[in-house]
């Protein structure tokens, strides 16, 4: 059981970090596994952390990007009220969309926190020696590829930290044809996740899956719950789900503890 900020508050203590779970991490069955894996990592390093629990709300990212600024501002207002009440200082999140909104868009609305993506947090834990990965493990000798999410990648120029994390494994990191600044979107951003594609020749996730198949990797590392869904679907539609596993970075690290 992860303690909530409210519970810490009642005890008169404050945790070191807030783990922002996000809507996908809270409700989506696949993303819940990522949430649990990340919690296990946090428990493993023994850091004091809390979640907002029922007090957490959507950051408003999909509403804002669909064009509904009112709804975004309402969600932001409520979240900032909650976090400022608890005097939150540092946030780590497993969703790059939440990360981007909390880090770049909340400050001018009155929410100033140190916000860190779980990919970068994992890199810091590994580099500082707080998180030791066991050699071998289930990824030994496997070809792993990394999919840059738009919101960690181009939106926030985080390219190296996640790769460093994957390089800490006993496996071979291969790059996709389109990667880093040139990375191809999975098709979910800008609130596309919540609607059908516009008419076109193919789906964006299938276009991206081509790159994955071409890379010859047996594991795809993702850092975003929406990319996770999109890429898993793409791999399934190519009937390759038995050969290629699409995993979040947190799951990969949790399996290597």
């Amino acid at each position: 059981m992860v303690k909530t900020y409210a519970e810490f508050h009642q005890e008169g203590t404050t945790p070191e970090i807030l783990f922002w779970v996000g809507c996908a991490g809270s409700f989506d069955q696949r993303a819940q596994k990522v949430t649990k894996a990340f919690v296990e990592i946090l428990n493993h390093v023994g850091i004091s952390f809390a979640i907002l629990g029922k007090e957490e709300m959507c950051t408003g990212d999909p509403a804002r990007r669909a064009g509904n600024e009112f709804l975004f501002q309402m969600m932001a207002y409520n979240n900032i009220q909650t976090m400022n009440m608890y005097e939150v200082k540092k946030i780590v999140t497993t969703c790059p969309h939440c990360f981007n909104t909390l880090k770049n868009e909340y400050p001018e609305l009155g929410g100033n926190y140190e916000v860190i993506s779980h990919a970068v947090y994992l890199q810091q834990l590994i580099n500082s020696g707080k998180l030791a990965l066991k050699g071998g493990g289930s990824f030994k000798g496997k070809k792993i590829t990394y999919h840059d999410s738009c919101y960690l990648g181009r939106a926030n120029a985080i390219y190296e930290a996640p790769r460093e994390v994957l390089n800490a494994l006993d496996s071979e990191l291969v790059e996709l044809k389109r990667c880093k600044t040139n990375g191809l979107c999975c098709g979910a951003g800008g609130a596309q996740m919540f609607k059908e594609d516009e008419p076109g020749a193919t789906r964006i996730n299938l276009e991206r899956t081509k790159d994955i198949l071409e890379s010859g990797a047996s594991v795809v590392a993702s850092n975003c719950p929406f990319c996770l869904t999109m890429l898993s679907d793409g791999v399934k539609m190519n009937e390759k789900e038995n050969e290629i596993e699409v995993l979040d970075m947190a799951e990969i690290i949790q399996r290597s503890l």
Binding site: C23, D28, A63, L71, M75, A191, M193, F194, K195
Partner: peptide, 12 residues
């Protein structure tokens, strides 16, 4: 999705 965020604080 807007309705869900407004009522359930999540897009679903």
């Amino acid at each position: 999705m807007f309705g869900n965020i407004e009522n359930n604080m999540a897009p679903w």
